[in-house]
Design a protein around this nucleic acid. Sequence first.
DNA 1: AAATAAAATTAGTCAAGCCTAATTTTATTT
DNA 2: AAATAAAATTAGGCTTGACTAATTTTATTT
Lengths: 217, 217
Amino acid sequence: MHTLSEENYLKCIYRLQDKGQKITPTAIAESLGNNPASVVDMIRKLTDKQLIAYDKKKGVDLTEQGQKHATLIVRRHRLWEVFLLEKLDYHWDEIHDIAEELEHIKDATLADRLDKFLGFPEYDPHGDPIPKANGKMPKRYSTTLADVKAGAHCRVAAVKDTTSAFLQYLIKLNINIGTKIQLIEKIPFDSSLVISIDGNEHKTVSQKFGESLLIDM
Amino acid sequence: MHTLSEENYLKCIYRLQDKGQKITPTAIAESLGNNPASVVDMIRKLTDKQLIAYDKKKGVDLTEQGQKHATLIVRRHRLWEVFLLEKLDYHWDEIHDIAEELEHIKDATLADRLDKFLGFPEYDPHGDPIPKANGKMPKRYSTTLADVKAGAHCRVAAVKDTTSAFLQYLIKLNINIGTKIQLIEKIPFDSSLVISIDGNEHKTVSQKFGESLLIDM
DNA sequence: AAATAAAATTAGTCAAGCCTAATTTTATTT
DNA sequence: AAATAAAATTAGGCTTGACTAATTTTATTT
């Protein structure tokens, strides 16, 4: 079986895939808060275990086996998040770190039993799709609030950023998965967004904020 | 916070307390399957952290702090066992090892939330009492099936042996916590027990079996 | 009490997974 | 293309928690 650290690297690489950029040792190091030298060590280890392939030109890539493993870690993470929120009444911003630990519990049937117990949820509390037992993934949202045109009405589908700082800001703004937002205007100067949350008074948020909210139209 | 290894030592020492014997490095080593030399290292570490006190004459003893910490690990272990059995439909004999991992998840409120979610259970699926949040412990059963007189009716309250072999035997016999058993007769030759499970046909079990079942009358 | 056996301890080693510092390779500017 | 900057890599070290082997202490026999 794989160690905690190996699993964290796999998950990290899996996440970095979404960005569509070349996955470099430096990128992994930054994402994990580790030193690039340590990353190089682990790249060697994971390559030996045939979980990743590393090519200086192409960067790091998950092998089929690595991809499968990473997907299952993400599956476990997201299922536990649903559990923590729905069953144990945690708040949105508290569940990530705990799920980060729970996802590493090793048991062949645990994830599937949890899945069943939770009623086979499609999305986790952040709106991210939960991979199925076979590794298939429901479609993920890709449009962010920063992408839509002024005047557009949309619905919060997921969050791209799951840091506590962002989630607490959302709570403060009373924004949840499903909340309706209208983009009133984009400020040309710095791309700030003027929005109306659930039809309420206008508020201004940053471009960074807009890029962190995935939406449905 | 304490490491996985430290917690396992604490839990081990906690368990050894029940035997009423002096807790020696060798005893800990045997119980954990470690080398005595490693145990000596950890004893030093836990002593430095004031979780245990070690006296060559008296052996290892948990400090108040260590006792509290160990109790909370046991609490988490037993609560997770209830969860796995009741909510995820695991069998009696499958839950121990998974709970062994889950018990180390670090979050200040997790155990209490789980406790609430499970309806504040008093006993775990093996019949062991679940320590309360404050560290208090419900009374444990002490009478075994081997202790009662022929003719007596009793109820299975807990199991003293949690090995898979024993639990699977119980499953085969259709015995659970709460199952009613009547002791029909004791065979003087080898102290075998003739019993009736839930009023069904007589079956014979060994003395060892009888001593492993804790009962209520 | 001396001899022997067992337990405890010390000393030194090892792998995992991280680190820093130095070096080499690759990419970007000028 | 040369100079510079950035990224990748190597070399060597550290800590945790294990180990083995050797030694010392304690307990048990004779």
